[in-house]
Design a binder for these strands. Structure first.
Lengths: 205, 205
DNA sequence: GTCTATAAGGTGATAGAC
DNA sequence: GTCTATCACCTTATAGAC
Protein backbone atom coordinates (compact mmCIF):
# COMPACT_ATOMS: atom_id res chain seq x y z
CA UNK A 1 0.00 0.00 0.00
CA UNK A 2 1.49 3.26 -1.09
CA UNK A 3 1.12 5.91 1.60
CA UNK A 4 1.26 8.76 -0.87
CA UNK A 5 -1.46 7.40 -3.16
CA UNK A 6 -4.95 8.90 -3.18
CA UNK A 7 -7.33 6.84 -1.07
CA UNK A 8 -10.87 5.71 -1.64
CA UNK A 9 -13.45 6.10 1.10
CA UNK A 10 -13.20 2.38 1.86
CA UNK A 11 -9.46 2.59 2.21
CA UNK A 12 -9.67 5.58 4.51
CA UNK A 13 -12.34 3.88 6.56
CA UNK A 14 -10.36 0.66 6.89
CA UNK A 15 -7.18 2.50 7.79
CA UNK A 16 -9.14 4.25 10.53
CA UNK A 17 -10.63 0.99 11.78
CA UNK A 18 -7.19 -0.61 11.84
CA UNK A 19 -5.61 2.26 13.72
CA UNK A 20 -8.36 2.21 16.32
CA UNK A 21 -7.97 -1.54 16.77
CA UNK A 22 -4.20 -1.13 16.97
CA UNK A 23 -4.59 1.57 19.63
CA UNK A 24 -6.72 -0.80 21.67
CA UNK A 25 -4.23 -3.65 21.46
CA UNK A 26 -0.88 -1.80 21.56
CA UNK A 27 -1.95 0.33 24.54
CA UNK A 28 -2.97 -2.74 26.50
CA UNK A 29 -0.01 -5.00 25.74
CA UNK A 30 2.84 -2.87 24.39
CA UNK A 31 4.46 -3.30 20.99
CA UNK A 32 5.99 -6.69 21.56
CA UNK A 33 3.06 -7.98 23.55
CA UNK A 34 0.54 -7.11 20.85
CA UNK A 35 -0.02 -9.57 17.99
CA UNK A 36 -1.31 -9.01 14.49
CA UNK A 37 -3.95 -11.64 15.20
CA UNK A 38 -5.35 -9.53 18.04
CA UNK A 39 -5.32 -6.36 15.96
CA UNK A 40 -6.91 -8.07 12.98
CA UNK A 41 -9.56 -9.56 15.24
CA UNK A 42 -10.35 -6.22 16.85
CA UNK A 43 -10.53 -4.60 13.41
CA UNK A 44 -12.73 -7.34 11.98
CA UNK A 45 -10.25 -8.09 9.21
CA UNK A 46 -8.04 -10.99 8.28
CA UNK A 47 -4.36 -10.82 9.06
CA UNK A 48 -3.24 -10.69 5.40
CA UNK A 49 -5.80 -7.99 4.78
CA UNK A 50 -4.28 -5.97 7.61
CA UNK A 51 -0.94 -6.23 5.91
CA UNK A 52 -2.45 -5.03 2.66
CA UNK A 53 -3.01 -1.65 4.31
CA UNK A 54 0.21 -1.47 6.30
CA UNK A 55 3.45 -3.11 5.24
CA UNK A 56 4.35 -4.35 8.74
CA UNK A 57 3.43 -4.41 12.40
CA UNK A 58 5.97 -1.69 13.09
CA UNK A 59 4.47 0.52 10.37
CA UNK A 60 1.10 0.38 12.12
CA UNK A 61 2.69 1.31 15.41
CA UNK A 62 4.62 4.23 13.96
CA UNK A 63 1.57 5.52 12.09
CA UNK A 64 -0.38 5.43 15.34
CA UNK A 65 2.21 7.28 17.38
CA UNK A 66 2.80 9.91 14.73
CA UNK A 67 -0.89 10.51 14.17
CA UNK A 68 -1.64 10.90 17.85
CA UNK A 69 1.29 13.09 18.81
CA UNK A 70 -0.43 16.28 17.65
CA UNK A 71 -3.64 15.54 19.54
CA UNK A 72 -1.64 14.64 22.56
CA UNK A 73 0.18 17.95 22.66
CA UNK A 74 -2.86 20.12 21.97
CA UNK A 75 -3.46 21.09 25.63
CA UNK A 76 0.09 22.38 26.07
CA UNK A 77 -0.12 24.22 22.77
CA UNK A 78 -3.18 26.06 24.06
CA UNK A 79 -1.22 27.57 26.97
CA UNK A 80 -1.63 31.27 26.22
CA UNK A 81 1.22 33.71 26.95
CA UNK A 82 -1.34 36.53 27.06
CA UNK A 83 -3.66 34.84 29.54
CA UNK A 84 -3.68 35.04 33.32
CA UNK A 85 -0.63 32.98 34.42
CA UNK A 86 -2.09 30.98 37.30
CA UNK A 87 -5.37 30.36 35.47
CA UNK A 88 -3.54 29.27 32.32
CA UNK A 89 -1.48 26.70 34.19
CA UNK A 90 -4.44 25.42 36.20
CA UNK A 91 -6.44 25.11 32.98
CA UNK A 92 -3.57 23.14 31.46
CA UNK A 93 -3.49 20.79 34.45
CA UNK A 94 -7.23 20.18 34.34
CA UNK A 95 -7.22 19.83 30.55
CA UNK A 96 -4.48 17.24 30.76
CA UNK A 97 -6.36 15.37 33.48
CA UNK A 98 -9.46 15.31 31.28
CA UNK A 99 -7.40 13.79 28.50
CA UNK A 100 -6.17 11.09 30.87
CA UNK A 101 -9.80 10.37 31.75
CA UNK A 102 -11.18 10.46 28.22
CA UNK A 103 -8.23 9.04 26.29
CA UNK A 104 -6.49 6.56 28.59
CA UNK A 105 -5.52 4.31 25.68
CA UNK A 106 -3.55 7.08 24.05
CA UNK A 107 -1.81 7.83 27.32
CA UNK A 108 -0.87 4.20 27.87
CA UNK A 109 0.31 3.85 24.29
CA UNK A 110 2.91 6.55 24.86
CA UNK A 111 3.67 5.28 28.35
CA UNK A 112 4.45 1.80 27.05
CA UNK A 113 6.68 3.24 24.38
CA UNK A 114 8.60 5.65 26.61
CA UNK A 115 9.11 3.28 29.53
CA UNK A 116 10.95 0.98 27.15
CA UNK A 117 13.24 3.76 25.98
CA UNK A 118 11.04 5.33 23.29
CA UNK A 119 12.86 3.45 20.49
CA UNK A 120 10.33 4.45 17.84
CA UNK A 121 9.64 8.08 18.82
CA UNK A 122 12.88 9.43 20.19
CA UNK A 123 13.12 11.66 17.11
CA UNK A 124 9.77 13.24 17.81
CA UNK A 125 10.65 13.75 21.47
CA UNK A 126 13.94 15.44 20.73
CA UNK A 127 12.41 17.43 17.85
CA UNK A 128 8.88 18.82 17.92
CA UNK A 129 8.13 17.91 21.54
CA UNK A 130 11.29 19.47 22.92
CA UNK A 131 10.69 22.58 20.80
CA UNK A 132 7.16 23.02 22.12
CA UNK A 133 8.17 22.39 25.72
CA UNK A 134 11.10 24.80 25.51
CA UNK A 135 8.83 27.45 24.04
CA UNK A 136 6.22 27.13 26.77
CA UNK A 137 8.88 26.87 29.48
CA UNK A 138 10.13 30.23 28.27
CA UNK A 139 6.65 31.68 28.76
CA UNK A 140 6.39 30.28 32.27
CA UNK A 141 9.86 31.55 33.14
CA UNK A 142 8.77 34.98 31.98
CA UNK A 143 5.76 34.86 34.30
CA UNK A 144 8.07 33.96 37.15
CA UNK A 145 10.51 36.79 36.38
CA UNK A 146 7.62 39.27 36.20
CA UNK A 147 6.37 38.12 39.59
CA UNK A 148 3.05 36.86 38.27
CA UNK A 149 3.64 33.41 39.72
CA UNK A 150 5.93 32.10 42.43
CA UNK A 151 9.32 31.18 40.98
CA UNK A 152 9.52 27.59 39.68
CA UNK A 153 11.71 25.57 37.37
CA UNK A 154 9.46 25.58 34.27
CA UNK A 155 10.65 22.29 32.78
CA UNK A 156 10.17 20.39 36.01
CA UNK A 157 6.81 22.07 36.50
CA UNK A 158 5.71 20.67 33.14
CA UNK A 159 7.11 17.23 34.00
CA UNK A 160 5.17 17.28 37.26
CA UNK A 161 1.96 18.12 35.41
CA UNK A 162 2.47 15.28 32.97
CA UNK A 163 3.34 12.88 35.77
CA UNK A 164 0.44 13.71 38.08
CA UNK A 165 -2.23 13.72 35.38
CA UNK A 166 -1.14 10.81 33.21
CA UNK A 167 -0.66 8.74 36.36
CA UNK A 168 -4.42 8.28 36.53
CA UNK A 169 -4.49 6.75 33.04
CA UNK A 170 -1.18 4.88 32.98
CA UNK A 171 -1.38 3.41 36.47
CA UNK A 172 -5.13 3.09 36.57
CA UNK A 173 -4.89 -0.53 37.72
CA UNK A 174 -2.95 0.54 40.80
CA UNK A 175 -5.13 3.57 41.56
CA UNK A 176 -8.28 1.47 41.36
CA UNK A 177 -6.72 -1.32 43.42
CA UNK A 178 -5.89 1.08 46.24
CA UNK A 179 -9.04 3.21 46.17
CA UNK A 180 -11.19 0.11 46.01
CA UNK A 181 -14.04 -0.41 46.64
CA UNK A 182 -15.10 3.23 46.93
CA UNK A 183 -13.62 4.87 43.95
CA UNK A 184 -15.29 5.75 40.79
CA UNK A 185 -14.99 9.42 41.60
CA UNK A 186 -11.19 9.17 41.19
CA UNK A 187 -11.08 11.84 38.59
CA UNK A 188 -13.31 14.33 40.35
CA UNK A 189 -11.22 13.98 43.52
CA UNK A 190 -8.00 14.14 41.55
CA UNK A 191 -9.14 17.34 39.84
CA UNK A 192 -9.88 18.99 43.18
CA UNK A 193 -6.57 17.85 44.62
CA UNK A 194 -4.47 18.94 41.66
CA UNK A 195 -6.15 22.31 41.30
CA UNK A 196 -5.57 23.09 44.97
CA UNK A 197 -2.01 21.81 44.80
CA UNK A 198 -0.97 23.86 41.81
CA UNK A 199 -2.72 27.01 43.05
CA UNK A 200 -0.83 26.81 46.34
CA UNK A 201 2.40 26.17 44.54
CA UNK A 202 2.07 29.04 42.12
CA UNK A 203 0.60 31.72 44.34
CA UNK A 204 3.09 31.70 47.18
CA UNK A 205 6.08 33.93 47.74
CA UNK B 1 13.66 -26.97 41.47
CA UNK B 2 11.72 -27.14 44.68
CA UNK B 3 11.25 -23.68 46.19
CA UNK B 4 10.93 -25.03 49.70
CA UNK B 5 14.10 -27.12 49.61
CA UNK B 6 17.25 -26.00 51.41
CA UNK B 7 19.68 -24.36 49.00
CA UNK B 8 23.40 -24.69 48.57
CA UNK B 9 25.56 -21.59 48.26
CA UNK B 10 25.85 -22.17 44.51
CA UNK B 11 22.09 -22.39 44.14
CA UNK B 12 21.53 -19.22 46.12
CA UNK B 13 24.19 -17.43 44.13
CA UNK B 14 22.75 -18.55 40.81
CA UNK B 15 19.21 -17.60 41.81
CA UNK B 16 20.53 -14.16 42.67
CA UNK B 17 22.39 -13.87 39.39
CA UNK B 18 19.30 -14.93 37.48
CA UNK B 19 17.04 -12.47 39.27
CA UNK B 20 19.44 -9.62 38.60
CA UNK B 21 19.65 -10.54 34.93
CA UNK B 22 15.89 -10.85 34.78
CA UNK B 23 15.48 -7.42 36.36
CA UNK B 24 17.73 -5.97 33.68
CA UNK B 25 15.80 -7.56 30.82
CA UNK B 26 12.22 -7.40 32.10
CA UNK B 27 12.55 -3.74 33.10
CA UNK B 28 13.85 -2.78 29.66
CA UNK B 29 11.42 -4.77 27.51
CA UNK B 30 8.44 -5.78 29.63
CA UNK B 31 7.32 -9.34 30.29
CA UNK B 32 6.32 -10.23 26.77
CA UNK B 33 9.21 -8.32 25.20
CA UNK B 34 11.81 -10.14 27.28
CA UNK B 35 13.10 -13.54 26.14
CA UNK B 36 14.70 -16.35 28.08
CA UNK B 37 17.64 -16.11 25.70
CA UNK B 38 18.32 -12.54 26.79
CA UNK B 39 17.99 -13.39 30.46
CA UNK B 40 20.18 -16.47 30.14
CA UNK B 41 22.76 -14.43 28.26
CA UNK B 42 22.79 -11.68 30.87
CA UNK B 43 23.08 -14.28 33.62
CA UNK B 44 25.86 -16.20 31.88
CA UNK B 45 23.89 -19.42 31.91
CA UNK B 46 22.34 -21.66 29.30
CA UNK B 47 18.63 -21.49 28.72
CA UNK B 48 17.88 -24.99 30.02
CA UNK B 49 19.99 -24.24 33.06
CA UNK B 50 17.84 -21.17 33.71
CA UNK B 51 14.80 -23.38 33.69
CA UNK B 52 16.45 -25.71 36.15
CA UNK B 53 16.25 -22.94 38.75
CA UNK B 54 12.85 -21.58 37.81
CA UNK B 55 10.06 -23.65 36.31
CA UNK B 56 8.99 -21.01 33.80
CA UNK B 57 9.49 -17.50 32.52
CA UNK B 58 6.48 -16.35 34.47
CA UNK B 59 7.87 -17.85 37.67
CA UNK B 60 10.99 -15.71 37.31
CA UNK B 61 8.89 -12.62 36.79
CA UNK B 62 6.67 -13.29 39.77
CA UNK B 63 9.65 -14.08 42.01
CA UNK B 64 11.20 -10.76 40.97
CA UNK B 65 8.11 -8.68 41.63
CA UNK B 66 7.39 -10.34 44.97
CA UNK B 67 10.97 -10.04 46.13
CA UNK B 68 11.21 -6.36 45.26
CA UNK B 69 7.85 -5.24 46.60
CA UNK B 70 9.13 -4.92 50.16
CA UNK B 71 12.19 -2.89 49.19
CA UNK B 72 10.03 -0.73 47.01
CA UNK B 73 7.68 0.18 49.82
CA UNK B 74 10.36 0.80 52.44
CA UNK B 75 10.36 4.62 52.07
CA UNK B 76 6.62 4.86 52.69
CA UNK B 77 6.91 2.47 55.61
CA UNK B 78 9.43 4.82 57.19
CA UNK B 79 6.90 7.69 57.31
CA UNK B 80 6.79 8.34 61.05
CA UNK B 81 3.49 9.35 62.68
CA UNK B 82 5.50 10.86 65.56
CA UNK B 83 7.76 12.98 63.36
CA UNK B 84 7.30 16.55 62.17
CA UNK B 85 4.54 16.34 59.53
CA UNK B 86 5.98 18.57 56.79
CA UNK B 87 9.49 17.21 57.26
CA UNK B 88 8.27 13.62 57.21
CA UNK B 89 6.47 14.11 53.91
CA UNK B 90 9.35 16.04 52.33
CA UNK B 91 11.74 13.31 53.45
CA UNK B 92 9.44 10.74 51.86
CA UNK B 93 9.41 12.67 48.58
CA UNK B 94 13.19 13.00 48.50
CA UNK B 95 13.67 9.38 49.56
CA UNK B 96 11.41 8.22 46.76
CA UNK B 97 13.26 10.41 44.27
CA UNK B 98 16.56 8.89 45.37
CA UNK B 99 15.13 5.45 44.74
CA UNK B 100 14.10 6.51 41.24
CA UNK B 101 17.66 7.69 40.69
CA UNK B 102 19.41 4.70 42.21
CA UNK B 103 17.00 1.92 41.26
CA UNK B 104 15.45 2.90 37.93
CA UNK B 105 15.22 -0.71 36.78
CA UNK B 106 13.00 -1.61 39.71
CA UNK B 107 10.79 1.38 39.00
CA UNK B 108 10.42 0.48 35.33
CA UNK B 109 9.75 -3.16 36.17
CA UNK B 110 6.69 -2.14 38.17
CA UNK B 111 5.74 0.53 35.62
CA UNK B 112 5.71 -2.00 32.80
CA UNK B 113 3.60 -4.36 34.84
CA UNK B 114 1.07 -1.80 36.03
CA UNK B 115 0.62 0.00 32.71
CA UNK B 116 -0.50 -3.29 31.25
CA UNK B 117 -3.09 -3.82 33.95
CA UNK B 118 -0.89 -5.38 36.66
CA UNK B 119 -2.02 -8.92 35.72
CA UNK B 120 0.58 -10.60 37.91
CA UNK B 121 0.54 -8.35 41.00
CA UNK B 122 -3.03 -7.17 41.36
CA UNK B 123 -3.29 -9.29 44.50
CA UNK B 124 -0.36 -7.55 46.13
CA UNK B 125 -1.73 -4.14 45.14
CA UNK B 126 -5.15 -4.80 46.60
CA UNK B 127 -3.67 -6.52 49.64
CA UNK B 128 -0.45 -5.39 51.34
CA UNK B 129 0.04 -2.23 49.26
CA UNK B 130 -3.49 -0.95 49.83
CA UNK B 131 -3.18 -1.74 53.53
CA UNK B 132 0.05 0.23 53.88
CA UNK B 133 -1.26 3.18 51.88
CA UNK B 134 -4.51 3.30 53.83
CA UNK B 135 -2.56 3.22 57.10
CA UNK B 136 -0.28 6.10 56.11
CA UNK B 137 -3.16 8.05 54.58
CA UNK B 138 -4.80 7.88 57.98
CA UNK B 139 -1.70 9.41 59.54
CA UNK B 140 -1.62 12.23 57.00
CA UNK B 141 -5.33 12.87 57.43
CA UNK B 142 -4.72 13.17 61.18
CA UNK B 143 -2.01 15.76 60.56
CA UNK B 144 -4.46 17.72 58.43
CA UNK B 145 -7.24 17.54 61.04
CA UNK B 146 -4.83 18.72 63.73
CA UNK B 147 -3.81 21.68 61.59
CA UNK B 148 -0.17 20.58 61.30
CA UNK B 149 -0.35 20.64 57.51
CA UNK B 150 -2.69 22.33 55.07
CA UNK B 151 -5.67 20.07 54.33
CA UNK B 152 -5.09 17.63 51.47
CA UNK B 153 -6.62 14.41 50.18
CA UNK B 154 -4.06 11.95 51.57
CA UNK B 155 -4.48 9.25 48.93
CA UNK B 156 -4.07 11.66 46.06
CA UNK B 157 -1.12 13.26 47.83
CA UNK B 158 0.58 9.86 47.89
CA UNK B 159 -0.30 9.25 44.24
CA UNK B 160 1.21 12.61 43.31
CA UNK B 161 4.42 11.74 45.14
CA UNK B 162 4.69 8.41 43.34
CA UNK B 163 3.92 10.03 40.01
CA UNK B 164 6.34 12.95 40.27
CA UNK B 165 9.26 10.92 41.58
CA UNK B 166 8.95 7.73 39.55
CA UNK B 167 8.46 9.84 36.45
CA UNK B 168 12.22 10.48 36.40
CA UNK B 169 12.93 6.75 36.24
CA UNK B 170 10.01 5.49 34.16
CA UNK B 171 10.05 8.25 31.54
CA UNK B 172 13.77 8.86 31.66
CA UNK B 173 14.00 8.66 27.87
CA UNK B 174 11.57 11.54 27.52
CA UNK B 175 13.09 13.65 30.29
CA UNK B 176 16.56 13.28 28.78
CA UNK B 177 15.26 13.97 25.27
CA UNK B 178 13.72 17.25 26.38
CA UNK B 179 16.44 18.45 28.75
CA UNK B 180 19.09 17.61 26.17
CA UNK B 181 21.87 18.52 25.79
CA UNK B 182 22.26 20.19 29.18
CA UNK B 183 20.92 17.75 31.62
CA UNK B 184 22.76 15.39 33.79
CA UNK B 185 21.74 17.36 36.83
CA UNK B 186 18.12 16.23 36.30
CA UNK B 187 17.86 14.72 39.70
CA UNK B 188 19.41 17.58 41.63
CA UNK B 189 17.07 20.04 39.90
CA UNK B 190 14.11 17.72 40.38
CA UNK B 191 14.89 17.44 44.10
CA UNK B 192 14.94 21.21 44.50
CA UNK B 193 11.73 21.60 42.53
CA UNK B 194 9.83 18.87 44.37
CA UNK B 195 10.96 19.96 47.82
CA UNK B 196 9.82 23.53 47.13
CA UNK B 197 6.58 22.33 45.60
CA UNK B 198 5.55 20.09 48.48
CA UNK B 199 6.59 22.60 51.13
CA UNK B 200 4.39 25.25 49.53
CA UNK B 201 1.54 22.81 49.22
CA UNK B 202 1.68 21.57 52.80
CA UNK B 203 2.43 24.81 54.60
CA UNK B 204 -0.65 26.73 55.53
CA UNK B 205 -1.25 30.07 53.84
C1' DG C 1 24.00 -29.33 37.73
C1' DT C 2 24.90 -28.33 33.20
C1' DC C 3 24.95 -29.30 28.55
C1' DT C 4 23.12 -30.40 23.32
C1' DA C 5 19.26 -31.43 20.77
C1' DT C 6 14.69 -30.94 19.82
C1' DA C 7 9.82 -30.79 20.44
C1' DA C 8 5.58 -27.88 20.22
C1' DG C 9 3.35 -23.93 19.40
C1' DG C 10 3.01 -19.09 18.27
C1' DT C 11 3.99 -15.07 15.16
C1' DG C 12 5.15 -11.90 11.29
C1' DA C 13 4.90 -11.95 6.66
C1' DT C 14 4.10 -13.82 1.72
C1' DA C 15 1.98 -16.49 -2.34
C1' DG C 16 -1.57 -17.02 -5.15
C1' DA C 17 -6.61 -18.00 -6.05
C1' DC C 18 -10.81 -15.42 -6.52
C1' DG D 1 -9.42 -6.00 -2.09
C1' DT D 2 -10.01 -10.01 0.37
C1' DC D 3 -9.45 -14.64 1.23
C1' DT D 4 -7.01 -19.58 2.31
C1' DA D 5 -2.86 -21.74 2.73
C1' DT D 6 1.65 -21.71 4.04
C1' DC D 7 6.46 -20.41 4.95
C1' DA D 8 10.26 -19.19 7.93
C1' DC D 9 11.44 -17.85 12.14
C1' DC D 10 11.36 -17.25 17.05
C1' DT D 11 10.33 -18.67 21.74
C1' DT D 12 9.15 -21.51 25.61
C1' DA D 13 9.90 -25.69 27.48
C1' DT D 14 11.45 -30.67 27.77
C1' DA D 15 14.36 -35.01 26.99
C1' DG D 16 18.24 -37.21 27.82
C1' DA D 17 23.46 -37.57 27.74
C1' DC D 18 27.31 -36.47 30.68
Amino acid sequence: MNDASPQTRIQKRNMGVILDAALEVFSAHGFRGATLDQIAGAAGLSKPNLLYYFPSKEAIHIALLSGLMDTWLAPLRRLDPEGDPVEEIVAYVLGKLEMARDYPRESRLFANEIVQGAPRILDQIEGPLKALVDEKAEVIAGWGDAGHIAPVDPHHLIFSIWATTQHYADFDAQVRGILRPEGDAHFADAAKFLETMYRRMLTRP
